Computed example of a mutant assay.
Amino acid sequence: MNRENEIAACVERALDTYFQDLDGETPTGIYDMVLACVEQPLIEKILHFSQGNQTRAAEYLGINRNTLRKKMAQYGIE
């Protein structure tokens, strides 16, 4: 299994657990919830990997540096 499939499988298992734990409640905002759960640690890891170099981190992520800075502010990442 390649890394992308491992990540997808992990998200799938987490969502299975989430749906089981709903106990009849109607889910809302799942997309934003999953994005926030994945995006914050992703950005933190990439910043660590790039030794805090935001330009390099943005390149690794395939996003604009300004977008990275906005997301860092959104999640309180310094």
Rank of each mutant, 00 (worst) to 15 (best):
P41T: 02
P41Y: 00
G24M: 04
A8E: 07
M33D: 09
D32M: 09
Y60R: 14
I43H: 00
Y75N: 04
A73F: 08
V38P: 03
M33P: 00
C10M: 11
I7V: 09
V34K: 01
Y18W: 08
N53Y: 10
V11H: 02
Q40V: 05
L22M: 05
L47D: 01
I7L: 07
N2T: 07
N53P: 13
E39W: 00
L68M: 03
F49E: 03
A14W: 02
N66H: 14
L68I: 05
R65C: 03
E12I: 12
P27Q: 08
G62K: 07
L61S: 05
A57T: 06
C10E: 06
K45R: 12
Y31R: 15
T17E: 05
G24Y: 01
K71R: 10
Q54G: 09
N2F: 01
K70W: 05
M1C: 12
Y60C: 12
A14G: 07
R13G: 06
T26H: 15
D32P: 00
I46K: 09
T55N: 15
G76Y: 04
A58I: 05
T26S: 14
I7P: 13
D21Y: 13
I77N: 07
L68Y: 00
F49N: 11
N53W: 09
T55F: 15
N66L: 15
I63C: 13
M1N: 09
G52D: 02
D32L: 11
T26G: 10
E6A: 14
N64T: 01
V11G: 03
R56P: 06
L47N: 02
G76C: 04
D32Y: 13
G24V: 02
F19L: 07
E78I: 10
E59I: 10
Y18M: 03
V11S: 03
Q20Y: 15
G24C: 05
C10G: 14
R65I: 01
V11A: 08
E25F: 11
D21S: 11
F19C: 04
E6H: 13
L35D: 09
H48S: 14
Y18G: 00
N5V: 12
G29W: 06
H48G: 14
T55K: 15
G52F: 06
I77Q: 03
Q54K: 14
A14Y: 03
L42H: 00
D32G: 06
T67L: 14
D16W: 15
E6D: 11
A8N: 08
T26P: 01
T55L: 15
V11R: 05
R13W: 11
D16L: 10
Q20C: 06
E6S: 13
E4P: 14
G24A: 03
L61W: 00
E59N: 13
Q40I: 03
Q74W: 08
H48K: 15
Y75P: 01
N2V: 06
F49G: 09
I46S: 05
R3P: 10
C37E: 15
C10T: 13
A9N: 10
Q54T: 07
R56L: 08
P27E: 01
T17V: 08
E44G: 07
M72L: 08
S50N: 12
